[in-house]
Design a binder for these strands. Sequence first.
DNA 1: CTTGAGATGTTT
DNA 2: AACATCTCAAGA
Length: 204
Amino acid sequence: VSERLSTRRLPRSFFARRATSVAPDLLGRVLVSTLPSGRRLSGRIVETEAYEQNDPCSHSFGGRQTPRNTVMFGRPALLYVYFTYGMHFCSNVVTGADGDGSAVLLRALVPLEGIDTMARRRRTMDERNLCSGPAKLAQAFGFGRAQNGADLASSLSAIRIEAGGEIPRRSVARTPRVGVGDGPGSERLWRFVVKNEPFTSRPA
DNA sequence: CTTGAGATGTTT
DNA sequence: AACATCTCAAGA
C-alpha cells in the first residue's frame, strides 16, 4: 500500500492570532479537501480578507452572538460557512483566541488538484473561473451548511490547510476594503492579494 | 473591456 | 431591507 507523504496541517496556534495577521500569512498556502471517495481537491490561497470583531462589516460586530455567527466565536481554526444572497456560500477560517469573533474570508484560490471535479460543480471549463471568488471556491470545494464548524486543525477533519508555501511580504498587496459596509470604524477591514496573480476575484 | 440588472432565500 | 456574490447580456 503506497501512501502519499502527508503534509503537516497548520496547527491551531497559527490561527490563534489577529485576523489581520493571519490573513496575509495564509497566502500561498494550500487548502485541501479529501472527499469520501478519496479524491483530493486542492488550491493555493491567493486572496483573503480579515474580519475583526470591531469591524461594522463583520458578522460578529459588537460581540453579539446569533444562531448564524456562533462558530465565529468558537475555537480558532474552525471553518465558518455562511449562506448569502439566497444562493451562495462563503467560507472563513476562525481566528483569535477562543471566544473572539474574528475570522478570515477565503476569497480566491489557484486550483491545483481535482480540477475536473471543480469544473463539473462550477459548470465551466475555464480554470480561472473555478475558485476566483469566495462563493466560487465554496461551490468548487462543496462547502455548505455541513461544513460549518469543521475543525481544520483536527487530524480527523477532511479539510485542512497545509503548512509551508508562505509568500514573501513584498509579494503581498494590502488594500482597504471598499464598497458595502464602509464607514467609521471600517478602516481595519483589509483585503490581501498575491501580486501579479491572475486567479483572483474581480472587484477591488 | 465595462456596466447593470436579476437571481434567490436567510438574517436581523 | 439588506446581504462578506455571481452570471449574463448589452454597450462602448
